[in-house]
Design a protein around this nucleic acid. Structure first.
Lengths: 219, 219
DNA sequence: GAGTACGAAATCGTATACGAAAGAGTATTG
DNA sequence: CAATACTCTTTCGTATACGATTTCGTACTC
């Protein structure tokens, strides 16, 4: 036993490392992922790297073509639309299932996060706004008792994270609406509204973001 | 070039082969999947088999523990519930998105399939009933224009197929209701009902099946 | 000059081999 | 007799090596 903590497998290390580089934008969409090169960079052999890449492919973060190679998944607007639509569906449902299990403390936390988001609008801090936005939504859906559904939500967010770094542009007007919608959503949850109502509101919130994106790019 | 058709990779072959054996019940839940043994059976080495197993793990068909091995995924009622619930959500949405794109011809086909299902009830042919049921639902959601969502639906069905072979018991009463619900669903779609209405109906249909299962096992 | 055929380089796909971890069974000791 | 330590077996994890496939550059021909 080299140390106290359980050492992650090489394959897992490679997965985490490559995923991190994709999500944070070091490897931007279209970047060619050469197995041998990544293996050398990480100090492991190609076999675990290959496994990591295929996992990332399954999550939609990379595109893999047989006998040709892997590239960081692209960003075409159609893909973005489909991903957002799917996320709106699964996240809406996850939020609705979470709602009855969200305690007053979590609601307060979410409200505080949303207040910070409002501040970010005044100080124009899009990066922090985006990070807080993810935190806010996490609070709402993390209590979802269905782990499969929760996993789908996480995958959707990851996918978007990799796309966002290059395509998402902060739209002040939309961001303002977003904060207001968040508050409305919290009130719905606090008031013990029905699952259908909450699901509809959560889904609408995301759909509206999608519409804003489309209006911005596709005119 | 060995032959005209594109030859599948060993890894893909292994994936298909093991998946088929799980879905058709040759490998039932709990079955221990030893890499070396499968590799020998399929006439390939362990590397592609390992890749196949990990893909199946990502789809929820097998459980994998590091340094211990893989087993065909279990069937505990909680898992079943979560899977069905998730499927009801994504399939409901996929069906709603499909609805406007389903032509009269497809509706007729679906109606014919449903009629055959009714026959199966008279002749008591649960196996064929189950197969037809899948065909029926496929017709409804296959037109879904969102490929990500469609993929989630397929994964859900696969997952259930592997569980069903050992847990699902055919319940005549429920099956009868099911046929009636199918007809109602078709009428909704044919009448051009709104997406919300169709989604709700499709989801309810699956939830009811889930309830029937729970009533049967969890008393 | 454009298009095609050929060959070399790059990269992936998979087999083989060996080291590492976990589990089972057994001997030993209190 | 129970508990523990130890070894042996099984199986996985990963490195290395080599064959297969694709791609790109270059020369050749029409």
């Amino acid at each position: 036993m080299p140390d106290g903590v359980a050492t992650a497998s090489k394959s897992e290390q490679a997965y985490q490392a490559v995923k991190a580089r994709i999500v944070d934008g070091t490897y931007s969409p279209g970047y060619r992922l050469v197995l041998a090169k990544i293996a050398e960079d990480l100090g492991v052999s190609v076999v675990p790297v290959r496994e990591a890449i295929r996992r990332l492919e399954a999550e939609g973060l990379v595109t893999f073509v047989r006998n040709v190679g892997a590239t960081v998944a692209g960003i075409d607007p159609t893909e973005y639309l489909y991903t957002m639509q799917t996320l709106s569906i699964v996240e809406g449902a996850a939020t609705a299932l979470s709602a009855p299990l969200i305690g007053p403390a979590a609601i307060d936390r979410a409200r505080a996060v949303n207040a910070e988001m409002r501040d970010c609008l005044d100080h124009f801090d899009p990066l922090r706004f985006t990070a807080l936005n993810q935190t806010f939504h996490s609070i709402l859906f993390e209590s979802c008792p269905n782990p499969h559904l929760l996993d789908l939500v996480h995958r959707g967010w990851n996918r978007l994270a990799s796309l966002r770094s290059s395509t998402f542009r902060f739209v002040p007007g939309r961001a303002h609406d977003s904060v207001a919608e968040h508050e409305a959503l919290l009130q719905l949850i606090a008031s013990g509204a029905g699952a259908d109502t909450i699901e509809r509101a959560a889904r609408l919130h995301r759909s509206t973001t999608l519409d804003a994106y489309l209006a911005q790019t596709n005119h």
